[in-house]
Amino acid sequence: MIGIIDYGMGNLYSVSKALERLNVSYFISDNPEELDRASGLILPGVGSFKDAMAILNETGLSAYIQKAARAEKPLLGICLGMQLLFESSEENGLTGGLSLLKGTVVHFPEDVMKREQLKVPHMGWNRLRLNRESELLHGIEEGYSYFVHSYYVKAEADATVIAAADYGVEVPAVVGEGNVFGTQFHPEKSSHTGIGILRNFVKIVEEKVKP
C-alpha cells in the first residue's frame, strides 16, 4: 500500500490516477500515524519550496518523513517533492529542506539561459541521460519525460544523480540514495517512461515488505 502525502500543495489527483491505472492500492493522507501504515510514501508537489516546507513543518509531516526515511521506508519525491528532499532552496529566500539528500536547490542561471536562449521555466519533454544503475530505472530507456520547473538541484555528490537532462546546465532528473528517491519531472505525466518509473517504485516497495 502506497501512502500519498497530502500537505495541500500536491497535484494529488494525477499521481493517484496514475497509481490506479497501475492497479496499485494507495491512500491519501496528511496524518503521520495513518501514513505510517503505508509500506511506501510518495511526496508530490507543485508550488513554492518555502510554502511547502512551512506547511510540512507546521503539520509535523517533516519530522515524520525524516523518521520514515531513517526507518528505510521507500520514499519518492516528485517535482517540488524531490527538491524538498534536499538541504535547502533559494526560492523566495533561503529555506531549509528535509535534508534526506545532500545538495541545494537553485534557480537556473540567468547568464547561461540568456546565452543559450533558453526559457525559464524549463517546460516540456526532455531526454533522460542515465548516470548510474538504479532499481528505479530498471528497464527504462533514455526516453523523454515531462519537466516543468524553474529551480533545479545541485547535488553534492555525483552518485546522488541517477539520471540527468540537459537544459543549459545539467539538470538532475532522477536522484536517489538508499530508499530515498526523487524525480524532477512528473512521471505521472511522462507517458510510458514515467509510468515505468512509477511501476519500478511500486516494485521496490513490494520487495521491501516481502517476508
Partner: peptide, 11 residues
C-alpha cells in the same frame, strides 16, 4: 477534466 486526468499520462 477528471475523466481526462484518469486516462491521460501527458499534461
Amino acid at each position: 477534466v477528471e475523466s481526462v486526468a484518469a486516462q491521460l499520462a501527458i499534461p
